[in-house]
Design a protein around this nucleic acid. Structure first.
Lengths: 370, 370
DNA sequence: CCAGGACGGGAGAGCGCTCTCGCGCAATCT
DNA sequence: AGATTGCGCGAGAGCGCTCTCCCGTCCTGG
């Protein structure tokens, strides 16, 4: 591996040792301060083009000239100006991470930044982006104007592509991106089928895992708390769970819908207890609702897991810390996010690339609640 | 819904209705697709400079010409190319959000993206940045080379400034930024005093709130679980708590140090119980440790809050969801983050601006644990 | 009635970079 | 030996934008 660009605070200037051929000019011109290609070229005694070639490692450059140029780069503390580069290459080395939600009347936003999910996704992307020297620009997309802003940023090369994390099934962002022909990858299968790459977890398999675990633990009367059914993943989790239970003899699974919040979990469980006193197992489509369900169960004097077993979905850090610790279906969020980044980068490099999807297998994280 | 730009790889063009004065040229030149200032100028029948003035609202432009230009902009679907603009203005309209940690031998990173703190900070910044059309670029800074990368990005105008969130007291990032003379604002007072703007919460006041609450609830034998004392905030929280207790007659507060993790909270509490059986109140320097303390207390058959009252610090979402729900000192993270963004933007706009610090008052969020 | 502003607009010079083109030189082929 | 190829380098043209000049026009005051 050849020496990476030296960087070094950049402040400069390892003493300029009156280079071999270098004229007695200063390494830095008067300008704004940062050394340019021109400066490096002068110090190295070559042309701008050659320095550019060395920096980008494009065409072959004689070894000795390379050495001289590299030294000149080190001497001047040169770092490429990305605006200038991107102006001509039409590549920015940046992608937009769109956190997309749909504005609601009730709450100010569907986007909950305190949700650890958010950080885990971004963290996963970062780990995959950084090695390829790509930086993520964060943008919110709640309103139409937000979405327009994302689109124009992309359209005039402010960024090379988008990684979209939606909080709702009916989010228009993915469709807009496809229509604009922009490189993008979304987290979770979009509500309507569109030609767009995505990564997802095998939601049905995760639900099956939960079902089989409850059955194995001896549960005979289980219920489900589902998410909003317009969200594909909620849909899959529910039907996957129902199917698996049917396969184990329980034809009918009492189900109440929630909206992925803690409160909705409490409410759903309460209403479930109203109609079905003999429940001994519950599957909630996410951890927050599972936690709410546990709260409602305890309020109703049902012990967890002794009387009723509860399984969640997400394996969030909340579930690990609550008591009883929550048994939950784990989706490898970080890896999924990293894969999104990889797919996007590949798509940007080769726009003709087919739309792909990668489905990750969930695992069951068994703790105390079931 | 109006017809969105017809797709096609951005190829084009709301039907050009043979504009008023427009020559029969196409609105878009052959080029790469995106319309440029030149295109707009041609359609509007004015010069590039005039269009630029309208776009940037700089000098006065005759009202009617403005109208013509605006229409031309709409017709062509023009959006400024930020790379080109930034090349000449040396402003990018982007800031770097540096999530900074220090590499450790043990764990792969001190940065925990699953921590809701992270998302809340970013969310707060976003809300303040967006109205001023500035986008955050996310960067990790764990290694020296990461830090060098942040610095060079800044130095060559890849971004205008940095918002730094450190996870450790001895983080070198703030110092490096100051030395390089780059605009930056950090979250929480830096370990060593340096001329750098920051926002923080009045940690001592928060600790006092906790102390007074415990005293008011009748606690007579309280202990503290502190964070690493090289972190200024941990230091302040502890001494603030000790001082406040002293003012209320308890001269000595048994203290055990933790490292802000759940496990360290469990360990600290366990060791505290070993030495002091009659404890009736505990203050932990963050919620995670408070939660750990509660776990240890319950394991030792102490009821919370009946036997021992526990107060945490952070008012994290975890604390709200745990049982008993955690009483905690709340710092307005989102507002603090927003303030960071504002200070940074002001500093960028006026580099001569004094270094400032804004300290936020914490409040006590009383729930069930105390 | 004419000089002096004030103001609105155009021309053009770059910002720092990449990339195509062409030239010179050495190595290879006929 | 001459002709041909190929390779490495330099020259120079922009990428799309802003901004400083400068010039023409209109308004105002002496």
């Amino acid at each position: 591996m050849e020496a990476t660009p030296p960087t070094g605070l950049g402040v400069v200037a390892t003493a300029h040792d009156g280079g071999p051929t270098g004229p007695p000019e200063r390494a830095r011109a008067a300008g704004s301060g940062a050394p340019t290609l021109e400066d490096v070229a002068r110090v190295a005694g070559v042309s701008r083009a050659t320095v550019s070639r060395v920096v980008n490692g494009q065409r072959r450059v004689a070894a000795e000239i390379q050495a001289v140029v590299r030294e000149a780069i080190a001497t001047t503390g040169y770092v490429p100006n990305l605006a200038a580069r991107s102006l001509v290459t039409r590549r920015t080395g940046a992608v937009i991470v769109v956190v997309s939600g749909v504005e609601e009347q009730g709450s100010p936003s569907t986007i909950d930044f305190a949700d650890p999910f958010f950080g885990r996704v971004v963290g996963g992307m970062l780990r995959a982006l950084r090695p390829r020297d790509v930086d993520p620009i964060l943008m919110l997309a709640e309103t139409d104007s937000d979405r327009a802003r994302v689109l124009s940023s992309l359209r005039n090369g402010n960024a090379d592509g988008a990684l979209v994390v939606s909080t709702r099934g009916d989010d228009p962002m993915p469709r807009l991106l496809v229509e604009a022909g922009l490189p993008a990858v979304v987290f979770a299968r979009p509500g309507r089928p569109i030609p767009l790459s995505f990564v997802d977890v095998a939601n049905r398999d995760g639900a099956r895992l939960a079902a089989e675990h409850l059955v194995a633990r001896g549960c005979r009367h289980v219920a489900a708390i589902s998410g909003p059914l317009d969200v594909p993943s909620a849909q899959d989790r529910l039907s996957g769970f129902q199917d698996a239970m049917a396969r184990h003899g329980q034809a009918f699974v009492p189900t109440v819908g929630g909206n992925f919040t803690y409160e909705s979990g409490v409410a759903a469980m309460t209403s479930l207890l109203d109609g079905y006193q003999d429940l001994d197992g519950v599957f909630a489509s996410n951890d927050l609702m599972a936690l709410g369900a546990i709260e409602a169960l305890q309020a109703a004097r049902r012990r967890v897991p002794d009387d009723v077993r509860v399984v969640g979905f997400d394996d969030s850090s909340l579930g690990a810390l609550s008591r009883p610790a929550l048994t939950s279906v784990r989706q490898p969020i970080e890896e999924m996010a990293a894969e999104m980044a990889r797919i996007l980068l590949d798509t940007i490099a080769d726009p003709g690339r087919r739309v792909t999807s990668t489905i990750f297998e969930p695992t069951l994280r068994i703790r105390d609640s079931a």
